[in-house]
């Protein structure tokens, strides 16, 4: 079998690079996890070893002292609501951009592409002023709206790409049968787009979950802030407690890893569908 033989160096290369990347991905997480069970003094004196006793106090204190319970619920709330709306809006735009053949779509699509290039820091001050004037500053709505906006460019990109790949015949047949465009959207596009919906949802969810700058700036009440703000108050600065810091990071990271492990198949399936052609 000549093919096999020529594959051998490939295989060695393949295994070594895969194993290397796997180690790089897992070690930090394991280290973080074990360290979070050590009191601060033990981390300073013995950063590497396993904890001598499994010290739960870090988690208890991080949870209560940092109000992580409230933050956690808010994170779930923002991530789900904003992500759902982003997905819905992006799918609507994707449908019209892909199927309506209006020239203005090209312009809108270019605008969204431009949106991919904008950093949060360059809009934060005008955005804050805007929210203050309209009275949605320091409310949940004031967080959700920017989240939707920042999720849109990538999601629109995915949705448009995906829907362009769907044959026009389905839609045309329905039109001839007298269906309205909204009915087509609801009963044809949405079901067909399930894989890309999953991708948009998961990807947007991940980035909303980790978002920090917007929620920090746009809110001030503990009751409506989210997890990254809580975690940030544990990270670094003049005074420190590594144990608390690590346990807070674990609380923030674990849900995402679980979320990813459960849903990653959908994510991968959708990517194939979304990024096929421009």
């Amino acid at each position: 079998m000549p093919v096999r033989k020529s594959l051998l160096p490939w295989k060695i290369f393949a295994y070594s690079i895969m194993v290397l990347f796997t180690i790089l991905a897992i070690t930090p997480l394991l280290w973080l996890l074990t360290s979070s069970f050590k009191p601060h003094a033990e981390i300073v004196r013995n950063p590497l070893g396993l904890p001598r006793t499994w010290y739960m106090e870090n988690f208890r204190r991080a949870w209560t002292q940092g109000s992580l319970g409230v933050y956690f619920m808010n994170s779930v709330f923002y991530s789900i609501i904003a992500t759902s709306i982003t997905t819905l809006f992006a799918l609507g735009s994707g449908y019209t951009f892909a199927k309506f053949n209006y020239r203005i779509s090209k312009f809108f699509f270019a605008l969204y592409t431009l949106g991919l290039l904008i950093t949060v820091h360059s809009v934060i001050v005008p955005l804050f002023v805007l929210e203050t004037y309209t009275g949605i500053g320091n409310t949940r709505l004031g967080v959700i709206i920017p989240y939707i906006a920042f999720g849109l460019p990538f999601a629109v990109y995915l949705a448009t790409g995906y829907l362009k790949g769907i044959p026009d015949s389905l839609e045309e047949a329905a039109l001839i049968d007298g269906a309205t465009y909204m009915q087509i959207f609801r009963y044809i596009i949405v079901p067909v787009a399930t894989p890309i919906i999953a991708t948009m949802f998961i990807y947007t969810f991940l980035s909303n979950w980790n978002e920090f700058v917007l929620v920090l700036t746009l809110t001030s009440k503990t009751a409506i802030r989210s997890l990254p703000v809580g975690i940030n108050s544990f990270a670094g600065g003049m005074s420190r407690d590594y144990g608390l810091q690590f346990s807070a990071l674990v609380i923030g990271t674990i849900p995402m890893i679980l979320f990813y492990l459960i849903f990653h198949e959908y994510l991968e399936r959708g990517f194939a569908a979304g990024i096929s052609k421009e």
Binding site: I124, F128, V129, T132, S220, T222, N232
Partner: peptide
């Protein structure tokens, strides 16, 4: 409302400006 580190100053600045 508690701020911390650099973000304390960034937020203060934004609050003051608006």
């Amino acid at each position: 409302e508690f701020g911390y580190g650099e973000s304390f100053h960034n937020k203060l600045q934004t609050l003051a400006m608006s």
